[in-house]
Nucleic acid binder design. Structure first.
Lengths: 209, 209
DNA sequence: GAAAAAAATTGAACGCATTCATTTTTTCAG
DNA sequence: CTGAAAAAATGAATGCGTTCAATTTTTTTC
């Protein structure tokens, strides 16, 4: 029968998350007041806090959804990467970037990044960096695949380079979220330049190692 | 005569900054209450806000001091870099890392990074990224110097790689500040691994280009 | 050196996230 | 179906950064 209680709880959870998501989109995360979210979701402020630990918890729910989808899409790229190292890295990173504004605004991303850094002992931060690590792992997996097929030099440290590349794409993405006027194309263009610089170094020696 | 007003203002400014710095060190940035800082500095809360725009402004003053000193030390490394690319990069980055906890705690760094990301239109953020850019520029300058002297391949894109390396050392530093138990040696060790991976790619071709 | 003007100080008041004691609703035992 | 127990909902209270109107101190003017 799934109990009245269970059903109501699920409905309210959804209701709050929907209301919050809408408000974040309309007025921004910081400007969205808890009592406004509660009101839109037709619950009291106290009840809101029965469903979510705090305001950040709402954001985490949305970020998780976003990154999980992007990880899923990234898998396809890793499974069948384009011919050149440059194209392969570009494809994977573009996948990340292109998906980034589906559920979140730049301000929401900034807030998520800030919170994850500021309070490392928090479930928010743990989950955020878990997702980050999964993305970095995906970059490393791509590099390994390229090595296996001889597209890049086999003597390169794929794990270290995967981390380096992820740190870089992450930093560029941070820069993107910090400039409300920057279009996605600019981000992609900058990323392409860095990818070119790196893949230029990753070409295998002429006589295969 | 330097006017009574001027002198008092300077004294109070120092007094507040000293009190804040001490409290941040003792109880942490977040736990330090504005009224406690004001009390320790023997001013009212209202007066505090005549001297500093907000709590973050205090942090910015301390961060600026820190980074300016580190930039100064970095100059020496860039002016006379060690013999190998690996040693040179390691020396520069170690300089940054080794100085990092002189004025700031890990928590203060985290807060500074978080604030700089979260509120990009803020003087805090602008100044913080100005300092960041100066550090990245120093890495690029080092790479250029190494290229000029033939230590690393001349066909590498020094500007792009400087940014990549800075993004990476920054990400590793962020990780360091997020783990209260991580000693500096661990950070340095990880950085060494990444530097080795990168300089492995940067060796000039055997017949000079 | 007194009065007017300018600058700085002050603490009470405000906004907003979060907590908590109380009340209401739902479930369960008999 | 009833009453006790468990769970959830509620909104008033709290804590803390920041603002602001009123007061005090310093400087300037004559």
């Amino acid at each position: 029968m799934a109990g009245l209680r269970e059903r109501q709880k699920a409905k309210r959870n959804r209701s709050i998350l929907t209301a919050a998501s809408a408000l974040f989109g309309q007025v921004g995360y910081e400007a969205a007041r808890i009592d406004a979210i509660a009101e839109a979701a037709e619950v009291s402020v106290g009840t809101f806090y029965n469903y979510f630990e705090n305001k950040a918890d709402l954001l985490l729910a949305i970020v998780s959804m976003e990154v999980e989808e992007v990880l899923h899409q990234g898998e396809s790229v890793v499974a069948a990467p384009p011919a050149t190292a440059e194209a392969a890295l570009f494809a994977l990173i573009s996948t990340y970037y292109d998906h980034s504004l589906v559920y979140l605004t730049k301000e929401m991303w900034r807030t998520a990044m800030a919170l994850s850094i500021q309070h490392p002992e928090t479930p928010f931060s743990r989950r955020y960096f878990e997702l980050d690590a999964a993305l970095a792992e995906q970059v490393t997996a791509l590099l390994r695949g390229l090595q296996a097929r001889g597209t890049i030099r086999r003597d390169a440290d794929a794990a270290a380079l995967g981390e380096v590349i992820f740190a870089d794409l992450n930093a560029m993405f941070t820069g993107f979220t910090m400039d409300e006027t920057m279009p996605l194309a600019t981000l992609t263009g900058r990323m392409a330049a860095h990818v070119a610089a790196l893949t230029g170094l990753l070409a295998p020696p002429l006589r295969t190692v």
